[in-house]
Every structure is written in C-alpha cells, then in structure tokens.
Simulated assay, not measured.
Amino acid sequence: EWLVMFKNETHNHPTEIEPFGGAATCLGGCIRDPLSGRSYVYQAMRVTGAADPRTPFAETLPGKLPQKKICQVAAKGYSSYGNQIGLATGQVAEVYHPGYVAKRLEIGAVVAAAPRDQVFRGAPSPGDVILLIGGRTGRDGVGGATGSSKEHTDTALENSAEVQKGDAPTERKIQRLFRNPELTKKIKICNDFGAGGISVAIGEIAPSLVIDLDAVSKKYDGLDGTELAISESQERMAICVDSSEIAYFIAESDKENLECKHVANVTDSGRLVMNWRGKTIVDLSRAFLDTNGVQQSTRIHVGDISGSPSTNTKSLVDTLSDLNVCSQKGLGEIFDGSVGAGTVLWP
C-alpha cells in the first residue's frame, strides 16, 4: 500500500525580482515538502503566467525587469534545478496576459509517493532532540516570507537577497538518505526549511523547545542571532528523534556527505527558547504562539454576474495571432522529461 502526495506552490514575488533563483527554489520547495513526509517525488509540472515577452525594453515599467528577461531566465532556473536533481518535468505551459505585468505567476507542482509502512509520525517527548540535516545557513532568504506579501514598488529589485538560493545536489543527497526505510521509521516528526527558517521549521515541531543557534552550521561568519533564526537557506531538514539515535543519524548522513547537527532539545516548559552566544534572545510562551496572532475579517460584495455568455467573434487570423496559441515546444525542451525513466506519456 502506497501513500500518494501532491504538492504545488507559487513563487511569484521571488521570480519577479530574481527570476533564476525564484523559479529554481519554487521547484526545490515543492520537492522538499513531500520529502519531509518521507516520500519520493517522481514527476513535476510547471505552469506560469507572464505579460507579452515581446514588449520592447523601453516600455518596461519602472523598477521591474523586462518580461523577456523574466520569462527566459525563470525557465532556465526551474529547469536547472529539476535537471540537476533528476526530476522529470512532463508538463510545461506558459499563459500570456496583460494582467501579469503587475506580477508574474510561477507555479511548480509535483507528485510523490511512499510505501505506507515506511512513513511514521510520532509525538515529541521531553528529552527528544532536533537534528538539522543538509545545507548550511546564510543570509539568503532573510525576509523572504514577509517579502512575498509586501507591496511591489519600484525598489523591489533592491531586495533580491530575500530570494533563496537553490542547491539541487544537496537536496538530492537528502532524497537518497530518506530512501532508507530503517532511518525513516526512526523519525518522529520532520519539517523542511521554508518560510521563517529555524523559527518555524524547528519552532513548530514541539510545544516546548530550547534551540541552540550556535550549533547551526553557517555558510560564512558574521550572522547574528536574528539572521540565524529566520534565514530561509535551502536544502535543510529538521527531524525529531530519540536522543539515543543521534550517533546513528550522523553516521547515516555522513554516508551521503551530509552534515547532521544536534541543534535543539524538546523540553516540558511550554516555551520556545532560542539561545545565541550565551544569551537568551527568544523566550516566548507556546500558548501565545498558538493564538496565531490577531484574527482578521473583511466584507466582500459580489456584483451581478448574470447575463448571456459572450460569443467568440475572433477571426481565424486573430486567433492564430494570439501569443497563447503559439507552439511552446522550445520552452518545454529546456526541461528534461525523461530522467528517472518514469515518463509514460509525453506532453
């Protein structure tokens, strides 16, 4: 018996301001979510929306990249990640509409599966430990979660550091590590690192935690406690295991040339605590965090939508002149649809 998982996500804002990295980490995040459920991703799909890429450079809106630049570089970013990690991307489609001038649409989707008997979800207990497996932590992605919700202004391109940097080979190593059924059955809870970094990926694993930010592997020196806590550096996994399993996971990770660090402990204090350089820089009540902030509401009025359906009066010439009916064969061929020997029907 198998568990089948579907995942999709958008990376509209990151791809708008840094097309290669934004599109690459769109796919990386799609892969990592089901991977945290110990499942293996077999196929991917990419659906995007853009304004007319033939628009002259002189007509580009102030503070924005040209549509041609975004379309071409984003396709290279997404395909680069998929081709490196060995994931077949079978369906690739791009829709063109003037509405995407304001913000691009970048959707990545995957399908994954795992044998049911290899997936175990337990409950954290005081004394358990949190291990960080995979990539190192840097400043890339700091502010990414909030950045995607900010108003897009003519200074948005100055915030490209918000965009995460993908590392497909490291994520491939995590995939191989999680193909070991003996290892996956020892994992009580697993979270991938996305929006919010350590503060979310580790912070939501257990009701009570003490996180040692000094134990986190860094890409370079100079990061302060806040940056370590909220960095969205990619290809990292947080797992909750029994303390007796630390040596086992370090040894198994080493076989895949992956770093595995003990970075947090599960307690019974009812608080989320983060320590950095001998000081406690976060000490929050779990009861407060569980309120999920202020509840918001809004009123919506939907106008009259009745009326007769419109008829298609476009001529054959007009239809054939529409950018949306042109061949997208060249776009699709950037993506490897055969890797993994799992493709049966081609687009």
Rank of each mutant, 00 (worst) to 15 (best):
G144K: 01
E1H: 04
E256H: 10
L316A: 13
G141R: 02
W346A: 12
E1V: 08
P126G: 04
T25D: 02
G138A: 13
S327N: 14
A51F: 02
A113W: 04
R176P: 13
G144P: 06
V263C: 07
Q67C: 05
L183S: 04
T184E: 13
Y42A: 03
A109I: 03
V200P: 13
I246W: 10
E252I: 09
E151L: 11
I70K: 08
Q234G: 03
D318P: 11
I230P: 14
S160C: 04
G147L: 01
A195H: 05
A229C: 09
A229D: 10
A168D: 05
D33Q: 07
K314N: 14
L228S: 09
R236D: 00
Q295L: 04
E162C: 11
W276I: 07
A201V: 07
Q67H: 10
A50C: 12
G166N: 02
G332M: 10
I300V: 10
D268L: 04
Q328N: 15
G166H: 01
M5S: 13
A24R: 03
P53D: 03
D268Q: 11
H11W: 06
T55F: 00
Q328Y: 11
E259F: 00
C240A: 11
V111E: 01
G135P: 14
Y81C: 05
E151T: 10
S308A: 10
G49P: 15
L289Y: 06
Q43A: 02
H262S: 14
G99N: 09
G332A: 15
A24F: 00
R136I: 03
A161C: 02
I202P: 06
S310I: 07
G196S: 09
P62F: 02
I189F: 02
L258F: 06
A251F: 10
T10Q: 10
N12T: 14
P98L: 00
F20L: 04
Q328P: 15
K69A: 04
P207R: 00
D154A: 09
Y40F: 09
T48W: 08
D140H: 06
I281Q: 05
D221Y: 05
V317G: 11
G337T: 08
D242V: 01
W276L: 01
D304Q: 09
G21T: 07
S79N: 11
G134C: 00
A206P: 15
V47Q: 07
S217R: 14
T60V: 15
L289I: 06
N12R: 01
R139L: 03
G86Q: 00
S253V: 11
G293W: 11
W346R: 10
R38M: 04
G225W: 02
H152E: 15
G225R: 01
L27W: 04
R299K: 06
A44W: 03
P66F: 01
A75G: 12
I305D: 15
S306F: 05
A74C: 01
G307K: 02
N292M: 07
D290L: 12
R172T: 14
R277E: 15
A114N: 10
K329R: 15
S338R: 11
S36I: 03
M237N: 08
D304V: 01
K69H: 12
F335G: 08
S233L: 06
V294H: 13
G332Y: 14
A247V: 14
I189P: 05
